[in-house]
Computed example of a mutant assay.
Amino acid sequence: MDLDLTWLLWGLPLAFALGWLASRLDLRQWRLESRRAPKAVFRGLNHLLNEQQDRAIDAFIEAVQNDPDTSELHFALGNLFRRRGDYDRAVRVHEHLLARGDLTQKDRDRAQHALALDFLKAGLLDRAEAALRRLEGSAFASEARQALLGIYERGRDWSQASAMAEQLDTEQPGSYQIRLSHFLCEQALERARQGDRPGALQLLEAATARAPEAARPRIERALLLQQDGAAGPALDMLLETSAHAPQSLPLVAHPMAQLAKQTKRQAEVRQRLQGLQSQPPSLDVTEAIAQLSEDNTQARATYLAHLGTEASLVVASRWLADEPLSDPQAKALVLRALDQAANPLKRYRCAACGFEARQYFWQCPGCQSWDSYPTRRVEEL
């Protein structure tokens, strides 16, 4: 059978026309989808600028559906879920990114870091630790170690925290020596609770050698000595603390006054406190000096000297308590009112988060920051 060349001549142009038409349809469809995706992205950004996170999430979900291969949209969506507190969906987004085979190593590390943050914010510390461990050797390794240090501190795993802080101390420009000193103090307190007093004192000596300018190791050693009945050495340790760390004087003034009375060294310690009293005067130091006074007249003069320099409701109530009045009942009523008004002023306030507490904390219970509490009371700030 002879091949008819006429059909061939007609078929080639027809096939070319059909191919061209199909390509134009595909190109038009791609253009429509690419236009829809940027519109959704810009709409999401606009909602973010207006602090409308729910609408921004809806817009980014639409953008991801139109362009599922764009990793940046997934990162933006996952971060929005985390900021909103929807940690389950944030985890799913970042796990989906990690499951993709076309992801670059840089984006894979970024997704791993984002996943670790999801677990950390959700309070899943064991899963966060495992995720952070996988970032070793990546560009996020330093941030991962910082996060791991926070996890160990929250879990009070002081040996692991010490090892991580040692590693960070060799890598970071800042010093971790004071924080390492705190870790040794925490381990010493655990030893003391277990009855190992020599081991606790040895750790506190190591903490002092680690950070000689830190006040806490010496204060903890003095308190242990006081508990063991060694009032003289305990007082000497506090006097040494006031010399090495003058900023800690408000913290040690009261125990110094107590130990001075036990050791009959009131005059020596009172003179030392008066010489170290700062300007403006400290509430705790003023009270300690008044406690070491020879009589009420001298104590009232101490309070009046403070009031002459710095107005204080707390000191005024202390002065009134020592002032002899003709009507004891009226005095009791006034003192009760003053004490109630002054109680909130006696607290300590964290400089990092504002958490207030009646006692002094070396580590803030609210934000977990170290040494964030000023040694002065709220009234003095």
Results as ranks from 00 to 15, higher is better:
5 L>D: 04
12 L>Y: 03
22 A>V: 00
23 S>M: 11
31 R>P: 00
32 L>D: 01
36 R>W: 02
38 P>I: 11
44 G>D: 00
45 L>Q: 02
48 L>Y: 01
49 L>A: 13
52 Q>S: 08
52 Q>M: 02
60 F>H: 00
67 D>L: 01
76 A>Y: 01
85 G>Y: 06
89 R>E: 12
96 H>F: 07
97 L>F: 05
113 H>Y: 12
116 A>T: 06
117 L>S: 01
121 K>R: 15
122 A>M: 08
123 G>E: 09
139 A>R: 10
143 E>K: 07
153 E>A: 04
156 R>T: 12
166 E>A: 12
194 Q>F: 01
194 Q>R: 10
197 R>K: 14
204 L>M: 05
208 T>K: 09
226 Q>R: 13
230 A>V: 03
233 P>Y: 13
241 T>Y: 05
241 T>N: 12
244 H>Q: 10
245 A>H: 06
246 P>Q: 12
249 L>G: 06
254 H>E: 14
258 Q>G: 10
258 Q>R: 12
263 T>S: 08
264 K>S: 15
268 E>F: 10
271 Q>T: 14
272 R>N: 07
276 L>S: 13
278 S>Y: 01
279 Q>Y: 09
285 V>F: 05
286 T>R: 03
287 E>L: 14
295 D>A: 02
299 A>M: 02
302 T>N: 04
307 L>N: 10
310 E>Q: 08
315 V>G: 11
316 A>Q: 08
318 R>V: 04
331 K>C: 05
334 V>A: 14
336 R>I: 01
346 K>H: 10
348 Y>L: 05
350 C>H: 03
350 C>E: 05
353 C>S: 02
367 C>V: 07
367 C>F: 04
371 D>S: 08
371 D>I: 01
373 Y>F: 15
376 R>F: 06
380 E>Q: 13
